[in-house]
Design a protein around this nucleic acid. Structure first.
Lengths: 136, 136
DNA sequence: CTGGATCCACTTGGATACTG
DNA sequence: CAGTATCCAAGTGGATCCAG
């Protein structure tokens, strides 16, 4: 897969499929601002196992504050990645679930988590090595 | 992986492998703070096509400021994702390239870009729909 | 050319308290 | 239970000037 088409390569002539088609560039950046923030990915990952209510969601994503949970799910809702279903019951119950679009993120989330699992120790190691090198 | 099985299920007790192993949870969050920031992914994506020098890098990532480019590449360097090679020439030349670890991110970057390409218009659409609904 | 350094606006995110 | 509102600290990121 060659990252979409080769519309134009104005920059240095670096082969047929240099990087991102540069039109996508901006879209990618925008979406990174959304799903690449501190919590969205985690919420999505957690919701992939099935719908969850507010409190459960907060418990499944350790460290998230009420504020950020609220903000995050509302954004994801606006983007059409999750749905919010409120049941008018005596103890209010609200359930969040992934939309098909949200579920389509599965592959991205999975590959990310897999990668992190494979490399995070290596990266932490390298980070301290660099610090130690400065001690010389 | 287990995060994708049994889509329907009561919310509460969700079994032993609900989503992320919860030890990974924190690692994933930390790494998201790194590679999920505004520019790292873009820089990595651009570098996948081959080494680039500072100025070229800045041109290939439209919108990035000098400061953020410097900050970003330095972080990626600390994490062992890119290398920085300075040539002691008359006009200083510095080249940045991916390390094997950095290259291992390829799959993540690719699936992300692909996903964005597939869904960003849909998301933008949904976002405006929500806004319009509020106008009612 | 390749940055480092500084100033500053804006955003993110946590803590807390309060509401339906 | 499921939020909302507010305050506040820290970080992000852009612009600009400066230096090797």
């Amino acid at each position: 897969m060659c990252a979409m088409d080769t519309a134009d390569r104005p920059a240095a002539g670096r082969g047929p499929c240099a990087a991102i088609p540069a039109e996508q560039m901006d879209s990618v950046r925008q979406m990174l601002d959304r799903i690449g923030d501190k919590w969205s990915m985690l919420v999505i990952a957690v919701l992939e196992a099935g719908p969850l209510r507010y409190t459960d969601l907060q418990r499944e994503v350790p460290g998230i504050s009420q504020r950020m949970l609220t903000v995050t799910v509302r954004q994801l809702q606006q983007d059409g990645l999750v749905t919010r279903t409120a049941y008018a019951e005596v103890p209010p119950r609200v359930e969040y679930a992934l939309t098909p679009t949200g579920r389509s993120l599965h592959h991205v989330v999975t590959s990310l988590i897999t990668w992190v699992a494979d490399h995070h120790s290596q990266i932490r190691e390298h980070r301290t090595q660099v610090e130690d090198a400065g001690t010389t």
